[in-house]
Simulated assay, not measured.
Amino acid sequence: MIYHFCRRSDYSSDAELYINETLSTQGFIHCSPRDHVHVPATLRARGQPDLVVLEIDETRLPKPPVWEDGDPPDPDGRLFPHVYGPIPTAAVVAVHDLPPRPDGSFAPL
């Protein structure tokens, strides 16, 4: 499984595909392994109260994710899964709430 955080209003299970703005600006959708999704969420969306995490079964994607450096690169050399295309909602097996902690950071899933 791979994970992607987004605003609740940006994801609809009724749509056939999920498309994030980074697909058009960077050519891929940023994802994370389960144990690390809270790190980019805290970096990019600190304190945002309306986030969810999409749990994605990568075997249901049209193409497998590509594991590459993050943006910025992880100081420990950790790689992140990038999805080069829209994500079929059939690949999203669960949607988890991601509430911020009092300091605005996010806890691990």
Rank of each mutant, 00 (worst) to 15 (best):
Y11E: 00
A45D: 07
A90W: 02
K63R: 12
L17H: 14
V52P: 00
V52T: 01
P99W: 14
P100F: 12
R44E: 04
R8I: 04
D97R: 10
R44Y: 07
S9H: 08
M1R: 13
I2G: 08
P72H: 02
G70C: 10
D35E: 15
S12V: 10
S105Y: 06
P81H: 09
S9M: 08
P81W: 09
P102S: 13
H30F: 06
P62S: 10
L109Q: 06
G85Q: 11
H82V: 02
V93Y: 00
A91K: 08
E16I: 14
P62T: 12
H82G: 07
D10Q: 09
T22W: 09
T25M: 07
R60P: 01
L51D: 05
I29K: 01
A45I: 02
Y84N: 01
R8C: 07
S32V: 04
D103W: 06
L79D: 12
S13T: 06
S13G: 09
Y3D: 02
T59L: 12
R60D: 01
I87N: 05
I19F: 05
A91L: 09
S105F: 06
V53P: 01
Y84F: 06
D69F: 08
L61P: 02
T59D: 13
P65L: 10
D71R: 12
E68K: 15
P73H: 04
R101W: 07
I2K: 07
V83E: 11
H96L: 15
V95I: 09
A91Y: 08
D35Q: 13
W67L: 14
D35T: 11
G47Q: 12
E58R: 14
H82I: 02
L109D: 03
C31S: 11
V53A: 03
P49V: 06
P33E: 15
L43Q: 04
H38I: 00
E21Y: 10
V39Q: 11
L54Y: 00
G104L: 03
